[in-house]
């Protein structure tokens, strides 16, 4: 009951946020936080199965380009193009990873890396996709007569996507499917002996994760109105991993959100320019790895004076505990 009212409060605050935050730049940062949160959760879903993807940006791009091309070339309505972007990304993942996963986690890592790289090359070199200068003049989202134009409207859209994403992942993680994923992440040997088909469950996690990366890719395309291939470089995938790690790798939903929030806003608060971001990143990462190896969220489980409560909240956030 208390949990439900807490969630309701958080939601109301988030909905009212644009009334308080008038500065469009801040709102823009919040939108980026939500976007990176979705990408980070996609990474985390695979990490739960002890798969490390280095290709998040590639699937993000597939979703974005699919949606943008459907709208511009085929005049498909936006509300259809967005899920189509997700499906395209998911199908691409299904194709690539159904082969890669036969080889185990290391092959998965390499293949995810290489395929994202190839995606970027193809998008850059094939003129149909707009080339290295990018795909320009992507129209803003339009649902019926309503045209999304203001930062506030985009904020509500990305918030809706994020909330749906969280709900879907939460439902998965707390079901038998999520339990099988936890089992795989904990011991593949024992999971197998208990009847978990490792290959199939890992493939499912990869495809579902990439679906959401594709959906948010579509949002990104129509929010920015342009797509440039180099945006979706290896570096972007690494940043997404770092966000998840800074928030806490074992917090599969809250970790990426907290990590993205901190990493999008902290550089701004310190008024450091874009060019200092990598230095800033490196420093924070090293600090976290030394002092909080479980990520920012593990603080509750590490401070003794927070005691049992901290531990319980921590375990809640890790979504591993079944009520007996």
């Amino acid at each position: 009951m208390r949990k439900k009212s807490l969630i309701a409060c958080a939601l109301i605050l988030l909905v009212l946020l644009p009334l308080v935050v008038k500065n469009p730049y801040i709102l823009h940062l919040v939108i980026y936080t939500c976007m990176y949160s979705v990408l980070g959760m996609s990474f985390s879903m695979m990490w739960k199965n002890r798969l490390i993807t280095a290709g998040t940006a590639g699937f993000w791009a597939v979703g974005g380009y699919t949606s943008a091309l459907l709208v511009t070339k085929l005049a498909v309505p936006f509300w259809l193009a967005m899920p189509a972007g997700g499906v395209a990304s998911a199908l691409f993942a299904l194709f690539i990873f159904s082969i890669a996963l036969r080889g185990g986690p290391l092959v998965f890592f390499s293949v995810s890396l290489v395929s994202a790289f190839i995606v970027m090359e193809v998008l850059g070199t094939v003129s149909f996709f707009g080339g290295w200068e990018g795909l320009l003049d992507i129209p803003g989202p339009r649902i019926g007569p309503y045209l999304f134009f203001t930062k506030t409207s985009f904020y509500y859209m990305v918030l809706a996507i994020l909330v749906l994403n969280i709900l879907a992942f939460h439902a998965l993680y707390t079901s038998r499917i999520g339990r099988a994923w936890t089992a795989i992440g904990s011991s593949t040997r024992l999971a197998e002996v208990q009847g978990v088909n490792i290959y199939r469950y890992r493939l499912a996690a990869s495809v579902i994760g990439c679906f959401w990366a594709g959906v948010i890719g579509s949002f990104y395309a129509h929010y920015q109105n342009l797509l440039i291939p180099t945006t979706f470089s290896f570096l972007c995938s690494i940043y997404v991993q770092m966000y998840a790690l800074i928030g806490g790798l074992n917090y599969f939903i809250a970790g990426p959100i907290v990590g993205s929030f901190v990493m999008v806003f902290l550089p701004e608060l310190l008024r450091a320019g874009q060019e200092y971001q990598p230095i800033f990143f490196g420093a924070l990462l090293i600090l976290i790895i030394i002092f909080l190896p479980g990520g920012l969220l593990s603080i509750g489980e590490r401070l003794p004076w927070l005691g049992r409560l901290g531990g319980r909240i921590g375990r809640r956030l890790r979504l591993v505990s079944t009520k007996s």
Partner: peptide, 13 residues
Amino acid sequence: LFMRSSVFDNVVT
């Protein structure tokens, strides 16, 4: 075992 899970979760899994 599923070392980071509770005893009960181990069995449920």
